[in-house]
């Protein structure tokens, strides 16, 4: 038997995109409901996936439920296409759905993400699928699920500001930098998953559909295109995104989210785009940061 025959025989043991059709249907129903009630956490019968919780089982199930043979999939982990989590999930869908994959943001129809929103503006027709560890923004202040559900139902969100108050009281400013709570369409308070608050403004009135899947917690929620997403704040401590002193060391981009990279054990470090596709794209178009030249010289 040839290698090609082996893999087609293996593929035959999986339904398209791993999940069976009934499960996909159940998840799609949850997704539709989530889209109909922006920011509301819809319970769903999360399945066991062939990867551990915490590795994006929620996002994977959402992606599996919406993926079609014509889709082009991009998977990122903290902005990068080449980290373990991103690589394995991409390989998973190549194997079980045989779909086209890409690292280019603008080419993708579905982007599954862990903790970042791409720098490039998403457009109509694209869907961003978030992997969510803890969907309940009120969890750390009110551990009772019965109570937090009631609070959502009755729109009792004073507690959310208690959290921000504590932040300011302790640090002099709102020190929450990721998973920064937002109010969706003036109604539900939502956890945007642990994306940096830098990305919060991108969610507001986004042209793309945003879906959130929490596998362990069995919740799906959504932000439909062109939906208001407002970060919570105080009048005298308004919401602010992170800013960086320097541009990206490789591509020279400004007003993007940067990762710190340690270069040696003598304290050397550089700040580079967290979105690797964005960075490479800029480099290809001739943009240069202050460390990029050295890199090329070394090569």
């Amino acid at each position: 038997m040839s290698t090609a025959d082996m893999s087609s025989a293996e593929l035959a043991t999986y339904n398209f995109a791993y999940l069976d059709e009934q499960t996909k249907r159940m998840i799609r129903r949850a997704i539709l409901k989530a889209i109909a009630i922006p920011g509301y956490q819809v319970p769903f019968a999360s399945r066991e996936m062939p990867m551990p919780y915490g590795w994006g089982t929620g996002g994977v199930q959402v992606t599996a439920a919406i993926l079609g043979p014509q889709d082009v999939l991009k998977v990122i982990d903290q902005g990068a296409d080449d980290t373990t989590n991103a690589v394995s999930i991409r390989a998973f869908f190549q194997k079980v759905a045989n779909v086209a994959v890409t690292t280019k943001t603008r080419e993708a129809t579905i982007i599954q993400t862990r903790h970042r929103i791409p720098e490039e503006k998403l457009t109509e027709g694209q869907t961003l699928v978030y992997q969510v560890p803890i969907p309940e923004p009120l969890r750390f202040l009110e551990p009772r699920e019965t109570e937090t559900r009631k609070m959502h139902a009755l729109e009792e969100y004073g507690l959310m500001h208690v959290k921000l108050y504590e932040d300011i009281a302790r640090n002099g400013h709102i020190a929450t930098t990721y998973a920064y709570p937002v109010k969706v369409e003036g109604r539900y308070v939502m956890d945007p998953s642990p994306t940096p608050k830098f990305d919060n403004p991108k969610m507001h009135m986004s042209e793309a559909l945003q879906l959130f899947g929490a596998g362990r917690e069995k919740r799906i929620y959504a932000v439909p295109p062109y939906t208001e997403v407002v970060s919570l704040d105080f009048e005298d401590h308004p919401f602010e995104i992170q800013s960086f002193d320097k541009p990206c060391a490789l591509c020279g981009a400004e007003n993007v989210y940067l990762d710190e990279v340690v270069l040696d054990d003598k304290g050397g470090r550089m700040f580079v785009c967290s979105d690797t596709d964005h960075c490479e794209d800029r480099c290809a178009h001739g943009h240069r940061g202050h460390l990029a030249y050295n890199k090329e010289a070394a090569e």
Binding site: E156, G158, L159, V162, Y165, A169, R170, E235, D236
Partner: peptide, 26 residues
């Protein structure tokens, strides 16, 4: 709320009824 500061314990009801000015709440 035992894990929340005294100030926030007192301020919670104010925030619950819509007060959004940190300085005044404090």
């Amino acid at each position: 709320r035992m894990a929340v500061s005294a100030g926030a314990n007192v301020g919670e009801r104010l925030m619950a009824v819509g007060d959004r000015h940190y300085g005044k709440i404090r």
